[in-house]
């Protein structure tokens, strides 16, 4: 199965990749958001030592 066919996904490429990419993006957004949330929490007063 050449790279071209793989991307085409038998004509359903848009739908299959549309699903996979959105899922990956959603997870990425959440991971970044949680890391930011955790770092912000660490920098709160009283938590300096835990930075």
């Amino acid at each position: 199965m050449s790279a071209g066919d793989f991307l085409a996904m038998g004509g359903y490429g848009f739908y299959v990749w549309g699903s996979y990419i959105v899922a990956v993006v959603a997870i990425a957004i959440e991971v970044v958001a949680v890391r930011a949330h955790l770092n912000a929490a660490r920098r709160m007063p009283g938590n300096e030592e835990l930075r």
Binding site: V34, R35, M44, N47
Partner: peptide, 14 residues
């Protein structure tokens, strides 16, 4: 588990 750490820190920081 990651987010709960942040929540604990936020609420227990005092």
């Amino acid at each position: 588990l990651l987010r709960v750490q942040a929540i604990i820190l936020e609420r227990e920081c005092a």
